[in-house]
Write a protein that binds this DNA or RNA. Structure first.
Length: 489
RNA sequence: AGCGAGGUAGGGUAGCCUGGAGUGCCCGCCGGGCUCAUAACCCGGAGAUCGGAGGUUCAAAUCCUCUUCUCGCUACCA
């Protein structure tokens, strides 16, 4: 029964813990959570992973700046991330930290597998070095020939380093892209990657002698493994690679990533997997960025949006709904409280909340048996919703669900159940209550808390997607609070 | 600069692959209806030469060429 066909493994990036979580992180999490919950709704065996990336020079510096011990510093931040995800109803099955032993062990095995395959060699990394900052930079990173951090002169330096033969995998990557059209997603970004790979791949320096806060390179302990190489392996270390668990869940079905790390996940990571003798993931999805009222979100501008504050002000579910409804997955979008309020007031309160409230109000005044024949079924495009979700068109799926909600509101207006009684009224209520039950199932991945509350008001248990069809209504209705309240500016 | 994506009513989007009346959705605006319900809901309407030019075709938002504007990526910044 536990076949590989009904498993689903989805990951988020592991976030770099040099600062607390913000709206961008939360967006990745919410999107991934919705996809994970959807697959659970399908009855699949889901493994949903997130975590934190805790090595590297930047983190060591950030800790030093605050006069804290590095481990204590990352411990504190990892907790902040965990708390934030809990607050946003994120249903991750595991939380991997790159400072954990289980991660280090898998990293060692992975590097050794690459080495056995003859893909690692010792060479020299050449770059521009800024002495006061103790950091290497590439030509592109320099600002007018000077250090991009402090603005001082840099010097060309060579450092011994181990390299990964990325160049060896150019053809194999291109073949993989070609054979798996859905791997690079969204489509609008795939050409960008393919053309760059076609342009040629250089081998990668994957170790550093100068970086102290990291995982040692197993073949030469004077070196530490470069953070991003090691970080990518988290997707396997959480599965305890070479275990029953990894046999079941690997390859990952979706790596959800921000567009800035697309290259690492679409090119370097699959090449590393080839090298270690593993299958690449099925899909890497690069989502877009949020601006805030037209401006880039940045600390210096001071417009960084705190997801917990937004969730506190408007409710977790309103925030989750807004994030996925506002923009198609893959596009960039603009965040503003005004836009959030608009969707909360019009779509959540006026459409969904009001529908539930008006139907439940009428139902409570009726004391007969609720039964009838499905009339609203035709307004629900379940196939379309399933297709959208399969294609990760989350905003499209919501649009279809709302189309149904609007059809239900229209049904109330047209039927005027408040003027009915007896069998006629029973039939109208049957249709509306079953619709609400189905709506509750459909919105549950997006707004789990709201779905629970609606279920409680309908007096039904939460169901799987297979139950999202008209049957006999078996609930015991008890009108409760509004699902959503309007909020004025 | 190279490569990529996109310019559709006041704003935001879908449609483009597989040409066939500008067809849809959301917000906003105008008018009407209703009153079970969170002053919510429903109906109707105004509003677009589908960035510009040329071409293919009986027919182009949709295919081809050119042009213009916007945005993204350009590898060791997690």
């Amino acid at each position: 029964m536990a076949g590989k066909s009904d498993k689903f493994y989805i990951t988020t990036p592991i976030f770099y813990v040099n600062d607390v979580p913000h709206l961008g992180h939360s967006y990745t999490m919410v999107v991934s959570d919705i996809i994970a919950r959807w697959h659970r709704l399908l009855g699949e065996r889901v493994f949903f992973l997130t975590g934190t990336d805790e090595h590297g020079e930047k983190i060591a510096k950030a800790a030093e700046l605050r006069k804290e011990e590095v481990k204590a510093f990352v411990d504190k931040l990892a907790e902040a991330y965990k708390a934030c995800w809990k607050g946003l109803s994120i249903s991750n099955d595991d939380f991997i930290r790159t400072t954990e032993r289980r991660h280090e062990e898998v990293v060692f095995r992975f590097i050794e597998a690459m080495d056995r395959n003859g893909d690692l060699y010792k060479g020299e990394y050449e770059g521009w070095y800024c002495v006061p900052d103790e950091t290497f930079f590439t030509d592109l990173q320099l600002k007018e020939g000077r250090c991009p951090v402090c603005g001082r002169d840099v010097q060309k330096l060579k450092e011994e380093s181990y390299f990964f033969r990325l160049s060896k995998y150019q053809d194999r990557l291109l073949e993989y892209y070609k054979a798996n059209e859905n791997f690079l997603a969204p489509k609008s970004r795939s050409a960008e990657i393919i053309n760059r790979v076609k342009g040629g791949l250089k081998d990668l320096s994957i170790t550093r002698k100068s970086v102290k806060w990291g995982i040692p390179f197993p073949m030469d302990r004077k070196h530490n493994i470069y953070v991003w190489v090691e970080a990518l392996i988290n997707y396997l270390s959480a599965l305890d690679w070479r275990s029953e668990k990894s046999d079941l869940f690997w390859p990952a079905d979706v790596h959800m990533v921000g567009k800035e790390i697309n290259w690492f996940h679409s090119v370097i990571w699959p090449a590393m997997l080839f090298s270690a003798g593993l299958e690449p993931p099925r899909k890497v999805f690069a989502h877009g960025w949020w601006t805030v009222e037209g401006q880039k979100m940045s600390k210096s501008v001071g417009n960084v949006v705190d997801p917990m504050a937004m969730a506190g002000k408007y409710s977790v579910d309103a925030l989750r709904y807004f994030l996925v409804r506002e923009i198609p997955l893959g596009d960039d979008g603009d965040f503003s409280e005004k836009a959030l309020r608009l969707r909360l007031n019009n779509e959540l309160a006026a459409d969904l909340g009001n529908l539930a409230y008006r139907v439940l109000s009428i139902t409570e005044k009726f004391d007969g048996k609720i039964e009838g024949s499905p009339e609203l079924e035709a307004s629900l495009d379940l196939k379309g919703i399933e297709k959208d979700m399969q294609e990760l068109n989350l905003s499209g799926a919501l649009e279809r669900i709302w189309h149904f909600i609007k059809a239900c509101n229209k049904y109330v207006n047209d039927k005027k159940p408040w003027e009915m009684d007896g069998a006629e009224l029973s039939n109208a209520l049957y249709n509306l209550l079953e619709s609400l039950r189905i709506i509750s199932i459909l919105v549950s991945p997006f707004m789990p808390e709201t779905s629970d509350r609606l279920n409680a008001q309908l007096g039904v248990k939460s169901g799987l997607l297979s139950e999202a069809k008209f049957g006999a209504f078996k609930g015991k209705v008890k009108k409760g609070e509004y699902l959503f309240r309007k909020i004025d500016a």
